[in-house]
Computed example of a mutant assay.
Amino acid sequence: MSHHDSIKGRGSAYNPLIRFDRLTREAAMPDWPGDDAEPTAIKTELIWQEAKSAITRNQSPDIYFSQSINPYHGCEHGCIYCYARPSHAYWGYSAGLDFETRIIARRGLADRLRHELAKPGYQCEPICIGANTDCYQPAERQLGLTRQLLEVLLTHRHPLVIITKNALVERDLDVLQALAAQQLVQVYISISTLDAETARLLEPRASAPHRRLQTVETLSKAGVPVGVLCAPIIPALNDHQIEQILPAVAAAGAVMASYVLLRLPLEINELFKDWLQRHFPQRAEHVMSLIRQMRGGKENNAQFGERMRGTGIFADLIRSRFELACRRHGLGRRHMDLNCGSFCVPGQAKQLDLF
């Protein structure tokens, strides 16, 4: 059983050790009787950081884009499975509660982006916004960092992809429509379950599943190409909903769908197993057994070509079910059909723009 109490509105219940720290910290609980109060709510702390660069590049064969921008480090959505959690250690914070309560916002990011787009030799390729942490998490409502990036990319006709699980993306529908009119944008809404209670436990501060379906419909009706990312698929927890999610998103107007199998790298392994014991204790060992069977006997496999989809009989079954449901409901595979030919380098007006 887990030794931690759940905290309302938070995915993790504690801070695991920061792997780069030389010091070991351990919470000391008072031993006097009568101290059975609920865990104190933890407020979100916003930390500003000057952006030294904007575009991050990767060469992973498993990822369909090579460029990304993350306006925030950490994410208040608190998704227990988030693969970005371990990255918080690079800033001196824990992958647990710190990740969802100490949010780093990157000041001056739009200016840095404009500067990098103007560099000699820059090659225009789609940029993914929100690849690591959600670019429409709650802090975005007041700060508008993501909207600033969209406005820069629209001004210079640069293609982009957005990944989010927050209905706040609807706020920027005017910019998204202008981008879509020039074939410059795709939006992916992450939906891992349609069950409100499961979503509340898995993704405590993200938009509810029904609200995300409404967002898919809103974007689709506005002419914005929208797909759905079913991530993560967790065996014996939400995989049975594949055949429910895909027809629902297709009916809402999604044209593409993809999925990712649950990954448990570094601190996420410890955090997820603790979460399982707190919320699904009778199912926990079965879930972990299936994960090991899909990861070659391990609890995580970082091998390119295998880490996103897994291997073995159960992984193959999930793949077959997902592909069959996509064909049945007319959902295509994720693809990057975006316009890179209209890019206008900042500071270099095209001849036709002068008229």
Rank of each mutant, 00 (worst) to 15 (best):
S2F: 04
S12H: 12
I18A: 05
F20Q: 09
D21V: 02
T24E: 08
E26I: 07
M29C: 12
D31M: 07
D36V: 09
I47N: 04
I47C: 08
T56Q: 14
P61N: 07
I69M: 04
P71N: 00
C75P: 10
R85L: 06
G92S: 09
D98M: 13
E100M: 11
T101S: 12
D111N: 11
D111S: 12
R112F: 01
L113I: 06
R114T: 14
H115T: 11
A118Q: 07
I127W: 02
G130H: 00
A131F: 10
R147T: 03
V152W: 03
L154V: 04
R157T: 15
P159H: 10
I163S: 05
I163T: 13
I163W: 00
K165C: 09
A167P: 01
D172R: 02
A181H: 08
V187S: 01
V187R: 03
T193Q: 06
R200G: 09
R200C: 02
A206I: 01
P209K: 05
R211P: 00
R212K: 13
L213M: 09
Q214G: 01
G223T: 04
V226D: 04
V226L: 13
V226R: 05
L229F: 11
C230Y: 15
A231C: 14
A231Y: 03
P232M: 00
E243M: 02
A250P: 01
A250T: 03
G253Y: 10
L261M: 14
L262N: 08
P265S: 10
L266W: 12
E267K: 10
E270A: 15
K273W: 03
V287W: 04
I291P: 06
Q293F: 01
E299Q: 10
N300A: 11
N301C: 15
R307S: 10
R309I: 06
G310N: 03
I318Y: 08
R319K: 12
G330C: 07
V345G: 02
P346D: 14
G347H: 09
D353F: 12
L354R: 12
F355K: 10
